[in-house]
Each structure stands twice: as C-alpha cells, then as structure tokens.
Design a protein around this nucleic acid. Structure first.
Lengths: 186, 186
DNA sequence: GTCCATGTAGACAGATCTGTCTACCAGTCA
DNA sequence: TGACTGGTAGACAGATCTGTCTACATGGAC
C-alpha cells in the first residue's frame, strides 16, 4: 500500500489548530482570542476542534507546551550561533526583542492573563523558566557560583523581556541588560 | 451655567467604583472582571456607573492612573522607611512581594492583558516605569553614572517583580535581586 | 422654587463566548 | 463488509458581556 506519502496530506487538523492558536494567543492574548477565531483561522470545524481538545483550557495548556518546545529550540540555537559563552546571551535576546512580532514572554503574559482562573499556567511557567535558567547555566563555567549566577542572570533576562515589551528604546534596554550581565558575571 | 464637574469635591460613588475596580482588576485581571461585577461590588447601579465612566476602557485607564498614584505613594514611603539609600530598595520590594494579595505589577499585567486592544496602556506603563526609575535614581548619589545605574536597577527590579509572581521561593528571588543590585552598584 | 447633578431599580438589546448536537462523507484496515 | 478514524457544515443552548433605556427620588444652588 501507500507507496508514496509525500504527495499527500494537508497538515493534520490538530497541528493546524495548535500553530494557529499559538499565533493568535501570542499576538492578541489568550482571553482576547475566542475559540471561534482559532477555528476559523485554522480552517477546521467546531466538531473537529473539540475532537482534539476537550476545552479551551486544554488548548491553552497545549499552546504553552508547544510554545515552550519552540522557544527553547530557538533559544539554545541562538545561544550556539552567538558563540555559546555567556557573551552570547545579550545578542541572542536582542535578536528576539527586535523581531517584528515580539510581544514579550508567552508565559509571563499567560500568568498575567489567566493564572487566577487557570493556576496550572503558573506551574508550566515555573518549568519553562527553570529550563531557560538551565540553558543560561550552560553558558557558564562550572563551579560553586554557577547556579546562583545563572539565577541572577535569569532575573535580569526576565526584566529585559518585560521592558522590551513596552519601552520604545530597545537599544537602551539591551545596553542596560548588557551592563547588568557584565556586572553580575564579574 | 458652566457645569464644571471637576471643581466639585470628589463624589463617594465615583470613588467607590474606582477602588472596587482596583481591587478586582488587580486580583482577577482586567479582562476577567466584568463591569457588572464592579457595579455589584461597588454597590451602585449601572446608570450611576455610566454617568461617571463613559466605557469600561475609561475605567481601565482611571484604574491605572489611580494605581499609579497609590503605588508610588507606597513605594516612596517604603524607601524612606528603609533608610532612603540604595540599600532600601531590596527590603522595600521584599515587603511588597510578601504581601498577601501580591499579584505582580498592575502595569506589566495590563500590558500583557490588553495592550493589543487598548494601546493607551503602554503609554501609561511607560510613564509609570519612568516614575519608578526616578524614585530609584533618588536613592543614588549624583554623578554621571546615576541615570544609567538607575535604569539598570529598574531592569533588575522589573525582573524580580515578575519572578515574584510565579516563583514559590521568594527568598531566592529577593537574594538574587540583592546580588544584582550590589553588583551593579559596585 | 425650579433646575440639575446625583442617585436608585431593573429591563433590555445586541454581541460574543464556550460547548453540544445532528447529519453526512471518505479513506483505512481487520 | 463493516467498523473505525477523522473530517465537513452549521444550528443551537446557555451564559455572560457591554452599553442603553425608562421611570423615579433627593438635595443643594441659583
């Protein structure tokens, strides 16, 4: 059978729903995006949607898990591209901040938006930030101070992520982050 | 003639609406809080509400302006209580982070929640953060590096505000902030 | 004493949101 | 062949949201 699968499938419905939800949730916000908008943009029907996700809350969780995979892949790759040492951190982030569709951290935004109604988001965010911190720790030489330095850097990174979301002067934000990283790592 | 509303003393109803909206918006989120909930909790009627605020968006803006006044008053007071030098910064913030109803920065949350739909929130947030930065600058000795140091400290502060919203180990966050402040100020 | 700002109570319109339901179709595989 | 999987189209229920409306009460200012 099926000697040739390459000519076939439009991306499966579930995947289309998930990537569409990602784009809309990230851009417009989770609460601002109705299920109907996701369904229409993904080009599926309501029945199809509810066959794959039990509820909007389920989709939100799947969105954050998908976002985590995707962002971590980008982040580790960007750090590698910029040299893989602690000096890679700021240029990698600068790349992100300057991207056209930058809208901050999906997890921080998620906590702001729906943590009171969907506490699971806090747990997912903790795991995400722990992974981000681990990636930062991977840039540092081993030693006793490694873990605590990674935490301090992660804190500065979170500050810059947030500021990059509302400050118009990205260069200033990036410069301030660079200064903090240099001071902490010294 | 001259129906000048602003010349009159503040009316109880408007004030009640505003403080109620503050509590609900901050605790549950702006989008999650319906106008009806504010009206019921404030103990006014719909007509009364709409006589004071043209729309929910109007109330949101008023909420953020009120929050700004209130938070800045608390912040400058806390800094003074803790000595008024740069060493006051971390203990003042720690006080806030440990308060029972802590839910992060109302402005950062607001940007996450509704900036795409109500861009005015970004402008209000910029002004708020500029004032916060000025208060931090007020802790520092004058000199060439004062402004840029205040910016770096504000960035670290924003990072700690955000982390305090989802990390369970507040002591760690506060310790990391202390370390960053010490490193930057050195 | 009249005007008017401020307040009350609650119905209502119109939109939008999540989630369910019926009814049908095509390909896969045991 | 017949069951299963995954898809389509769209009506519908029930809740909730913002904002408008009518109708009436009260107290101070001019």
């Amino acid at each position: 059978m099926h000697a040739d699968k390459t000519a076939r499938p439009p991306r499966p419905a579930r995947e289309r729903i998930l990537t569409t939800a990602h784009d809309l949730f990230y851009r417009d916000g989770i609460r601002a995006t109705g299920i109907d908008a996701v369904i229409a943009a993904a080009g599926v029907t309501k029945v199809t949607f509810y066959r794959h996700f039990a509820s909007k809350n389920d989709l939100i969780v799947a969105y954050l898990e998908y976002r985590h995979e995707r962002w971590m892949r980008w982040f580790t790759d960007a750090l590698r591209r910029h040299g893989g040492s602690v000096r890679a951190l700021v240029p990698a982030l600068a790349e992100w901040f300057r991207s056209a569709d930058y809208r901050g951290c999906a997890f921080i935004n998620g906590v702001s938006e729906i943590a009171p109604a969907l506490p699971q988001v806090v747990e997912i965010t903790r795991r995400h930030k722990a992974d981000m911190e681990r990636a930062i720790a991977g840039l540092l030489p081993g030693g006793r101070r490694r873990a605590s330095l990674a935490r301090a850097l992660a804190l500065a990174v979170d500050g810059s992520i947030v500021q990059a979301q509302f400050r118009p002067d990205l260069d200033t934000v990036i410069g301030d982050l660079r200064r903090l990283v240099a001071a902490a790592a010294a």
